[in-house]
Design a binder for these strands. Structure first.
Lengths: 201, 201
DNA sequence: CGTCTATTTGAATGTACTCAAAAGCGGTGG
DNA sequence: CCACCGCTTTTGAGTACATTCAAATAGACG
């Protein structure tokens, strides 16, 4: 039943939020009431280039990826999102402008989504959620800082090893060409990195 | 007089904050009372590798830069901060752990600094500042997202042109080798980029 | 003026990409 | 169940991008 699934998703969402802030039962109920359950199949899009990103997504189950397509048609992976992560196009969501990126499912995926208007009102009604998203943004900053540092201080081989060290499961969930597009290298070059790695052993 | 300078800095800080949230006079007074004025000369450090970053800095006047030094001794510029910008080592500040980065002044610089304990208490006393820092973090995210995208989708030449297009004054305030270290290229290569650019014209 | 550091220049090298072809792998239909 | 199709990965050769090293020039500062 869908109602049962929504209840389960509510629980996961509350568990996630409760890691950072304490909520009353009333706050919890109101908060989850603002989210809609949504299911997508592999290769389906949650957002397509040109659309305005109307939601922030919280992944209940599955695996999502956001990417940019440049003029020559090459994909560049901005982020991926496992269970218990958030994903969105912040720029489009915040400024209500057409998105330059796509968000796609790589597995059968269940998300909870919230609209901008509902979220803005939530901040006004319960300022504790300003705090929650401050902490969420802060953590995202820390991750992004590290990625920038890796990008400017490491070569492709080092970035690849740092990625698999940080996310050991990523190679089983994401095709090599998408990992390459996250690292900022070509699939061909990633293949060479992996070959020379196994030769060393 | 220092008291006069502090009053002036208070005004600039309040103007900055008021772009994003509305504050009562009482909130303004309390807020600025938590900040200390601090002046540094060119080449002086506000934070050194190994120290815990005790403050967040708001630049009143001057120019700061944060950078990481890797094992071979190469500098990698993480961020710079003009007037009306914030700078800190978020990772060290948030988790009270030794910093891996340095923050240095490139000009005679005046900052307003706030300690973590004071900031944490401020969030509790006036949740409106949760909102302010949520918005601040959000904007920082947007900038970082763009930098990540540039890093994975552009070559050095393109990144250089994107940087000067975004910050036209940067070349007059920052040495070429520091710009190179921000872009993730060597000073030698940046010199070549600039030469070939002027040849084309 | 002299010293120190930054920038430029050139040559050689290494890193990563493009193009093209072959091999591998998964799904689909007969 | 297997043959075929489409897509991903691998491999190799040639090329472009970016670095290292070293030396020369230019700038900044006392």
């Amino acid at each position: 039943m869908l109602a049962l699934e929504k209840t389960h998703a509510d629980t996961l969402l509350i568990n996630h939020v409760s890691k950072r802030i304490n909520l009353s039962i009333a706050e919890q109920t109101h908060f989850t009431s603002l989210f809609t359950l949504r299911k997508v199949l592999p290769k389906q899009y949650l957002l397509q280039q040109g659309e305005i990103c109307k939601y922030e997504f919280f992944v209940i189950k599955g695996f999502l990826r956001s990417f940019f397509v440049d003029d020559p048609g090459n994909e560049h992976t901005l982020n991926f999102a496992f269970e218990d992560w958030w994903i969105s196009d912040t720029k489009s969501f915040v400024h209500l402008q057409p998105s330059e990126i796509n968000i796609i499912a790589h597995e059968q995926t269940t998300v909870m989504q919230i609209e901008k208007q509902a979220l803005d009102q939530l901040y006004l009604d319960f300022p504790i959620f300003d705090r929650f998203w401050r902490l969420l943004n802060q953590n995202f900053n820390l991750a992004q800082n590290e990625r920038v540092l890796n990008a400017i201080s490491m070569n492709g081989t080092e970035r690849y090893h740092a990625l698999v060290a940080k996310y050991p499961t990523i190679e089983s969930r994401l095709a090599q060409k998408h990992i390459a597009s996250y690292l900022g290298i070509t699939p061909v070059f990633l293949s060479m990195i992996r070959r020379s790695q196994s030769n060393v052993k």
